[in-house]
């Protein structure tokens, strides 16, 4: 199959959906600027014009709400936030309006929009340009949340998000952008709400999100050499969560490590851990462990960054502490 980078896979999903459907458009701060969005939007404005590729002023609340308003008329907007940190400005629109409208009006109103948040961390960018706040959105009823970890899923989940009748928060991590993988040329969808097993194993289950899936795969190879056979689950969708897949695996392995490159307290890893203890506690042979970022703001100095960010080694060490 054809190989494509993650960044090009997103670009292709955007080109194909915007071309296919007049109701799809892209809006946000910096949608035409590589400085903001890498190469994800290359060629879009030239092909579709400024009416459908809308670069906006720095007005996160107003613009996110505007995208939602267009969705209320049946359009399928994608509103892009070049750093998740900036999305706090849009929280009223996302949490109070977008997430609630379908429920609040008894199912008569849909908000079919994609809220695209980019994690763009490292490089000494410090506390306000580095955040991974997927847990905030996962907490809110009415939002779906997806985090593709490879080029295939980036394209397939973005297309699914655009064509879902619900608001979907699509989160990508720029650390994944240069990763390459198999990506079909035609349009296809990856179902929202379904995880995938990246490596089968019997000794321990590692459930990971986004960038940490890549790190879990690396950790899996290292562990294999040491005789530990890890099963690796790429959860892909944080909400609705594929509990069945996780439970099935943990029932088999009896051990669980959850790797999520975001803060620990009240995070996605904590939620998955709680679900497993609530439902299949008797299957566990060891305590569940979380590999997450520490509960501190992102630091600047590269020495501190190294201590802050997590890697395959953290997963390896954590797994070994259980076996």
């Amino acid at each position: 199959m054809r190989k494509l980078s993650y960044v090009k896979a997103i670009n292709e999903a955007l080109h194909q959906t915007i071309e296919k459907d007049k109701n799809v458009f892209l809006i946000g701060q910096g949608v035409i600027s590589p400085w903001y969005v890498g190469a994800t939007t290359v060629g879009l404005v030239d092909k579709f014009g400024e009416n459908r590729i809308i670069d906006t002023p720095v007005s996160e609340s107003g613009i996110t709400g505007a995208a939602a308003g267009a969705a209320l008329t049946g359009m399928r907007p994608i509103v892009m936030h070049p750093r998740m940190d900036f999305m706090y400005y849009a929280m009223d629109q996302i949490a109070n309006q977008i997430a609630n409208w379908h429920y609040m009006f008894g199912g008569q109103v849909n908000v079919p929009m994609t809220i695209w948040g980019i994690i763009n961390r490292g490089g000494e960018q410090a506390a306000q340009h580095s955040q991974a706040i997927q847990a905030m959105f996962t907490h809110i009823p009415g939002l779906k949340v997806v985090m593709p970890s490879n080029p295939y899923d980036a394209k397939g989940l973005l297309i699914s998000a655009i064509y879902d009748n619900n608001p979907v928060v699509f989160i990508d991590d720029r650390w994944l952008y240069e990763i390459t993988g198999d990506v079909p040329k035609e349009m296809y969808t990856v179902p929202i709400g379904k995880g995938a097993i990246r490596k089968k194993g019997k000794d321990v289950t590692i459930v990971a999100t986004s960038w940490m899936v890549q790190k879990a795969i690396e950790a899996g190879s290292i562990l294999q050499k040491d005789g530990i056979d890890a099963e690796i689950i790429d959860i892909r969708t944080l909400k609705p969560l594929d509990e069945t897949l996780i439970f099935k695996s943990v029932k088999k392995t009896g051990r669980l490590v959850v790797a999520d490159a975001a803060w620990k307290t009240c995070g996605v890893a904590g939620e998955i851990s709680a679900l497993v203890t609530e439902n299949i506690f008797q299957s566990l042979k060891a305590p569940i462990k979380r590999v997450t970022l520490p509960d501190t703001p992102a630091p600047m100095s590269s020495v501190l960054e190294k201590a802050y960010y997590i890697d395959a080694d953290n997963i390896v060490k954590t797994v070994k502490s259980l076996i």
Binding site: G65, A68, G69, A71, L72, T73, M75, D92, F105, V109
Partner: peptide
């Protein structure tokens, strides 16, 4: 919704951006 009244919201100012978005949709289409 059938008569152009998609909904009312209890967050002060919350629906103003939504109205702008409907205007944007009319503009694009």
């Amino acid at each position: 919704p059938d008569i152009g009244f998609p909904g009312s919201s209890a967050i002060v100012t919350g629906t103003i951006p939504l109205a702008v978005g409907v205007g944007l949709s009319f503009h694009i289409r």
